[in-house]
Design a protein around this nucleic acid. Structure first.
Lengths: 145, 145
DNA sequence: GGATTCTGGTTGCATATTGCAACCGAACGG
DNA sequence: CCGTTCGGTTGCAATATGCAACCAGAATCC
């Protein structure tokens, strides 16, 4: 899971970006959350060059974010999210909701993430205090180790 | 704010990545949240090549995520987050918390994001239902427009 | 106030990464 | 069987990145 050298040993943001901080990687993970598992499905969905896709899938498997599943019935490759990969759900939702708020004009349509139980769009996620108040950047600071 | 062509017109995740889906860009934004504002501060903090930093700062200003501030007292450039940039706080926190959970060994130290009012680390952020239950990817699906 | 340093870049060139198209063997489909 | 799809690999061209040198204007030193 560990790159030979981290960009910044102490910073969790930098470490995360060393593992998944690449446009294609994050779009592959988005597609994996949408249920895509096959090499060709990712390739068609993203329009990514095949050598780059092969490289990124290999890296994601090496880093424990996807696992390669070879079933008996179908010997071709499937790629599925590991628990560590599933844990990126919050990040993908954060990117999606920021885009919804900041990258579309008011009259533009976009795809929506729906919660099955209610049929409604997911509520916005935000850092909140124990009392429910929203936390903004000004309320925080990074404590270096 | 709009790239000439979006990777995927309908998907908010793809649009967000078109604007900030670059390792350096996200690290610049992280540093901006930590209070850095000067070209030389970003350059020293990140060890990024100066031409690349100049390019990324220009793009971030064009995309309305940073604004260039020239004060009378100090005519040198300062770069500060716009409201749209501040709104990325949730994304940066999500990346940070995923890294804390998944990119460090149990005995490894890392920097910590502290909430001023309590002096304690920020609680984890996650998508939650109205009843407070955590939402996982399986509970959701993307509705295409 | 003159010299020196710092800042915020730009430019040119070498190197690394990406994209594209062709190719390939194994597996499937009819 | 014969053609097609799948999951790649390979070689080459185009693009992006990194590095070092350079530069003008502002600030600092003395």
């Amino acid at each position: 899971m560990t790159p030979r050298t981290w960009t910044d040993r102490q910073c969790p943001v930098a470490r995360t970006l060393d593992l998944v901080g690449d446009r294609w990687v994050l779009l592959i993970i988005r597609d994996a959350f949408d249920g895509l598992t096959r090499f060709s499905e990712f390739q068609r969905s993203l329009g990514i060059a095949k050598n780059i896709l092969a490289d990124r899938l290999r890296l994601l498997v090496e880093n424990g974010i996807l696992r390669r599943v070879d079933t008996g019935a179908d010997s071709r490759a499937h790629y599925r999210l590991t628990p560590r990969g599933e844990d990126l759900f919050t990040v993908i939702v954060g990117l999606r909701q920021w885009g919804e708020r900041n990258a579309f004009e008011a009259d533009e349509e976009h795809s929506v993430l729906i919660l099955e139980q209610t049929g409604e769009p997911l509520p916005n996620i935000d850092p909140v205090r124990a009392d429910g108040g929203r936390i903004v950047a000004r309320d925080t600071h990074v404590q270096k180790v």
